[in-house]
Design a protein around this nucleic acid. Structure first.
Lengths: 131, 131
DNA sequence: TGACACCTACGAAGAGCTTCGTATATAGTT
DNA sequence: AACTATATACGAAGCTCTTCGTAGGTGTCA
């Protein structure tokens, strides 16, 4: 059984592609490229190359479909978000989730309803605490 | 009056140096290097070079002190944290602070007292809302 | 004065990221 | 069969990041 190197943190360009795949589901290079081009001009072979590299890295996997390939993410969006936020937590906030939450809400004020939802989340978390 | 390019996002190695400067206050290359070496072996000239580059980028500024230079950050830790968390918010969470908070607390559970502090923060934010 | 310890400056190597041009294969159409 | 459209594969350029070796300047001390 081969020992796999852990899935690396996606780069900026790779993250943009992952977000397309999370939204649209498994897609061909052409579909990803069309989706990306709306926000930012990106050549077809650029997207192809990135997806090839991402396959090597284990960020996506692919499957043959006739002459084309269909790519799909190997992590859910939630998993990747969790990893990235943990990463920022350790690199920038010394591991303090409280500090991060504080900065996030200061930087990007949430609406009343969003704040209420966060409160509900806190209630749930508190409920799970060993008391 | 020259138009300055905006201060760029610090890289990983730059961030480690900034964290030292935030903790210890304005420091010489030697002091930064000694502080870094505890966690990770880093050559003296490596730290020097990084600080020179960071000066060019506007991440730090320096002042002569005899034959050495004293470096200090040009942003507070809070400002940098705000920028980095905003960055992650946009690149990974589509701008939703609520989603980020959810993932942060799921990834790194906070203690009861920390949750209480976040609640107080929510109260403050709610108080500021235009109602 | 000469040896040493310390400083900055700078060039460059090696790796990774992003982009694109070109080569090649193949299915479909006239 | 030849042409066209579309696919993958691959090499390489240009850039950034990180690291370090080397060169050169200067203060200190025996």
């Amino acid at each position: 059984m081969a020992r796999e190197t852990p899935v690396p943190r996606p780069t900026d360009a790779e993250l943009q592609i992952l977000r397309v795949l999370w939204r649209a589901g498994p897609s061909t290079v052409r579909e990803v490229q069309a989706s990306l081009a709306q926000a930012r001009a990106t050549g077809y072979t650029t997207v192809l190359k990135l997806l090839q590299i991402m396959t090597e890295k284990g960020l996506v996997e692919r499957e043959d479909a006739g002459r084309a390939h269909i790519y799909r993410p190997r992590q859910t969006e939630e998993q990747a978000q969790g990893r990235l936020v943990t990463d920022l937590l350790d690199r920038v906030f010394g591991g303090s989730a409280q500090q991060l939450v504080l900065r996030a809400l200061a930087a990007r004020p949430a609406s009343s309803s969003e704040l209420a939802e966060i409160r509900r989340l806190l209630d749930d978390l508190e409920g799970e605490q060993t008391e």
